[in-house]
């Protein structure tokens, strides 16, 4: 690997998510590749968290700027949808940073069963989301949709604090 490519990767991986700035794009798992084309253009491949994620444009802009500042004049940011992002792409470091910032990280769901209808569960999910402030397990969901596409809102019954939870998809 050339040093220019290493530099470009380092610069791209350090860009932070516009909505959850405690995470880099590498932590979030949305960077799919950083390559250099024959003419020296740095080609970054990005995948959105959700189809309509409004932060995608900010990510592209921030990536271009970071790479320009790192001395790469020609930058192309491509978008890919396959394979689809899931919260399992968030790195261990990313999960730790979320918790440190008071955001409950998602569980790892692992490989999904392929084929067959997606089952509908009518009762509230029984899984425990621990409070990122006090660690208590006694928390409740207050809203299935939070301030960003990837978070839900919860409240801790023990310490009373509301908090965000990166919901598993």
């Amino acid at each position: 690997m050339t040093s220019a490519l290493t530099d470009a990767r380092t610069a791209a991986e350090a860009v932070v998510d516009p909505e959850m700035p405690m995470l880099t794009l590498a932590d979030l798992g949305v960077l799919r590749g950083v390559e250099t084309a024959a003419d020296g253009t740095v080609v970054v491949t990005l995948t959105p968290t959700y189809s309509g994620c409004p932060a995608l444009d900010e990510m592209r802009h921030d990536l271009r700027r970071a790479l320009h500042e790192a001395g790469h004049e020609r930058v192309e940011v491509r978008t890919t949808f396959s394979p689809p992002w899931s919260t399992d792409w968030i790195s261990d470091a990313g999960r730790r940073k979320l918790a440190e910032a008071g955001v409950a990280p998602p569980d790892r769901l692992g490989p999904r069963p392929a084929g067959g209808p997606v089952p509908l569960t009518l009762h509230a999910p029984s899984r425990v989301v621990a409070c990122p402030q006090c660690g208590a397990a006694d928390t409740e969901e207050t809203s299935r949709f939070g301030p960003t596409a990837c978070t839900a809102l919860r409240r801790c019954r023990s310490c009373g604090e509301p908090f965000e939870h990166v919901k598993e998809i």
Partner: peptide
């Protein structure tokens, strides 16, 4: 068609969540 397959792969997760939300309220 690779584009349809990719859009669908992404959308399935979203639609599952939408259906859950609607079902909970209907209930």
């Amino acid at each position: 068609d690779p584009v349809l397959a990719a859009v669908a792969g992404k959308a399935v997760k979203e639609l599952t969540y939408h259906r859950d939300y609607a079902a909970q309220w209907v209930l």
